[in-house]
Design a binder for these strands. Structure first.
Length: 492
DNA sequence: TGAAATGTTGGGGCG
DNA sequence: ACGCCCCAACATTTC
């Protein structure tokens, strides 16, 4: 019998359009699907609580899918010591007699370093080590601008990609694992519970009711989006109260669905509806896939950016430090309704609408002038879709210190944003129930309501609901001054 | 994938 | 009919 191949799952928890799986099947040898839990090797970016909950569910779903096809998922913990994953792979090679390891690539700096070392170590021992592209349209190292450098502006980047982009159609999931694809003897697997991904204290009720982790959940989500929201995406995505966005981000992050699958699903629907190819390729939704791709491009070429500003003059920026204001922001007690609604949606469901992410980020880094890294860290711990590339891009964009970032002086007014995108206040009412009886006119700025209106709505500012922790107008002006002072330091 | 300040235009009220 | 003012609506500039 041929020697087995270890199919090492990481952030590609799916069977459809999985290039490493496809390669393993084509090889014709027994396949040992494997997941190794090794949070220490993610450096300071080990998955946060929300993402771990998701990972637990998704691994469970993947194992179930594999079992229904006559296979299964082997789980191992390798959480301590140097080169723990590498040692675990070598141990499994020993246990199974495998002579090959296949996986799909990840792009976080610490993971690239680890995986390169693993690949070298395996090859040195005569083991076939193959990595594949399961997450991106194009590898970041294959893209450069005319002067041979990485792109730093989205529009020319995406235009460059789109000139030639024609993603291959996704490969289907195997109908079943043929006898030849099943190992004669399965290695031991740790119980899923032993990985410690699922929180001991069950705070995840809100997440469980908001999401269906796993490949089937991802596919259902995509279908639903394409059927009910894609046609009105351009405007629908701007309203946080209604399901106008795809909500595919956590599924994409964990690799339960690939960008190629999404691309082809959109293409198929567009063809059915008779839309020209040029039109859907340039659509807002497809462009969002471009932003995801751009984020990975930037993280690969500028690996220091999760913690350091890309624009170095921002190292001089006079950030404040205020633990109680940070805590108020984190838990949605700033007294600014749209900000609080967003932060509570995040806390409760592990996700926040993107329009609101921009608003809460602007509020943190501009009105409160707290470091963008503290916001990035909180998002990392609380988002089910926490993704190093996307999170870094988003926060550096909001802080104005990144590639193609919003200029620092672009400061969102959360009242204004609420009145534009949550016109009736439905979103705020859902997440900030203590002010839900306020009329729409005051829902985004309760401090402007007269005493009688507040009384009628049963709202006492500073009691039931906090007074705003900053004055929006004043803090905006101070933020602009801080920006000027940074530029002055830069000129010295 | 801003907001606010400032500038311009044009309709309408009024003497 | 005319000039003047006010102000809303829109455009431009600035941060």
């Amino acid at each position: 019998m041929a020697k087995p191949v270890l199919l090492w799952f990481r952030q590609d928890l799916r069977l459809t359009d999985n290039p490493a799986l496809q390669a393993a099947i084509e090889r014709g040898s027994p396949i040992v699907p494997l997941f190794i839990h090794a949070p220490d090797e993610e450096a300071e970016w080990a998955p946060g609580g929300a993402a771990r909950w998701w990972q637990h569910q998704s691994l469970s779903a993947l194992d179930a899918s594999l079992r229904s096809l006559g296979s299964r998922l082997i789980l191992r913990s390798a959480s301590t010591g140097a080169a723990a994953t590498q040692r675990m792979l070598l141990q499994l090679i020993e246990e199974t007699g495998a002579d090959a390891v296949f996986w799909n690539r990840r792009y976080e700096p610490a993971i690239i370093a680890r995986d390169s070392a693993i690949k070298a170590a395996l090859r040195e021992r005569g083991v076939l080590a193959e990595s594949h592209n399961g997450a991106l349209f194009i590898e970041p190292w294959q893209v450069q601008n005319q002067s041979g450098r990485p792109f730093q502006v989205f529009t020319p980047y995406w235009r460059h990609i789109m000139k030639t982009l024609a993603p291959p159609p996704p490969s289907p999931a195997p109908a079943e694992f043929a006898r030849a694809a099943r190992p004669a003897r399965w290695p031991e697997s740790d119980p899923l519970e032993s990985l410690g991904l699922k929180p001991r204290i069950p705070w995840y009720g809100g997440m469980a009711s908001a999401w269906q982790p796993g490949e089937a959940g991802a596919a259902a989500r995509l279908d639903e989006f394409i059927d009910s929201a894609l046609a009105h995406y351009r405007d629908g995505r701007e309203r946080p109260a209604s399901p106008g966005t795809s909500r595919l981000s956590p599924h994409l992050h964990h690799g339960e669905i690939s960008p190629r699958q999404i691309w082809h699903a959109v293409a198929r629907r567009a063809a059915q509806d008779g839309h020209p190819v040029a039109e859907w390729r340039a659509s807002q939704f497809v462009t969002e896939l471009g932003w995801r791709e751009f984020a990975h491009h930037l993280l690969f070429h500028f690996p220091h950016t999760p913690l350091q500003p890309l624009r170095t003059e921002f190292e001089q920026f006079p950030w404040r430090s205020d633990a109680s204001q940070l805590a108020a922001w984190q838990r949605g007690n700033t007294g600014v309704p749209l900000v609080d609604a967003g932060m509570r949606e995040l806390w409760h469901t592990g996700w926040m609408h993107n329009r609101v992410r921009m608003v809460v980020a602007s509020f943190l880094v501009k009105n409160l002038r707290l470091p963008w890294q503290s916001g990035a860290r909180w998002f990392w711990d609380t988002l089910v879709d926490a993704d190093l590339a996307a999170n870094t891009l988003g926060w550096q964009w909001s802080a104005g210190c990144g590639a193609d970032a919003a200029p620092y002086f672009r400061i969102f007014n959360p009242v204004n944003q609420g009145e534009r995108f949550d016109v009736e206040g439905e979103y705020v009412r859902r997440w900030v129930p203590e002010i839900s009886r306020l009329p729409a006119k005051f829902i985004h700025a309760p401090w402007t309501a007269d005493a009688a209106t507040l009384r009628a709505a049963n709202v006492t500012l500073g009691d039931h609901y906090p007074k705003a922790i900053v004055d929006l107008k004043e803090s905006r002006a101070t933020a602009l001054e801080a920006y000027q002072s940074m530029r002055a330091v830069g000129r010295e």
